[in-house]
Amino acid sequence: MGRALPASRGDGRDGVDRAKVGATERRLREHARAACDPGSEAVRDTGAAIDCLCRLAVTELGLLGAAVTLMTPTAPSPGAAVAPAPPAYSQAVAGASDERAHELEHLQFSLGEGPSAHAFTTGRPVLVPDLEAAFARWPAFAPAGLRAGLGAVHTFPLQLGAVRFGTLTLYDGRSRSLSSDEVTTCLILAEIGTERLLESAADGTSHALDPGLDLALRFRSEVYQAQGKVAVQLGVSLAHALLLMRARAYASDQDLSDLAIAILDETIEMGRHVD
């Protein structure tokens, strides 16, 4: 009783091929499930399971890296009178194949654009086979991605029905399209990732995230600290403060985190307007 696959799969194939495809998918699903089983000896907890899933994506598809970012709309947290300022969702990296994938994920956040945000807001996969052709779409991220050695990038939302938790982003060093089998592989990996996250929540009734997952979450605290500082300094909203910081970082070709640290050290003075 396999879960229904997307309707576009297997069109025009005869019964035998379909059965064979079904068996391959089932094997991958079982393999991925077993490899990323928190509670198995190799995988300590949910955080490690997400890392493992990313590494599996890299080996299955021959990628540079893969990363999972968790996102949530910035509804006020319980007891809080205000929501954190934009982006309209809060995010943190929950796992990655390696440090480089972490950095690439951060690059998207730093620039405030890229496939992860797009896939999260639309709930649809974002497939970019040729980053060079995406300059108009992402004027900051596309060139930065190319410089970082990317040829293609693909993001799949982690979601159940209308509820979305984050994204699985695949970074490819080559410029190429995913084959339909590879897309299926991605969808299966995204499905297993979603499954693992849901399992981590299965015991929880409170607002506390699964401890293994909680510890794995990484975000740049300096950016948010600097955001608060700039907002007070210039008397602007938090949202405006982050926009000014991103603009300044972009204009001076600086990483947002480095700029944030300079702001906190007061070695940089932020102006109200972009030069």
Binding site: S77, A80, P84, Q91, A201, H207, L209
Partner: peptide, 9 residues
């Protein structure tokens, strides 16, 4: 849980 963990941090 995510809203609690991420937003509040």
């Amino acid at each position: 849980q995510l809203q609690g963990a991420l937003n509040s941090r």
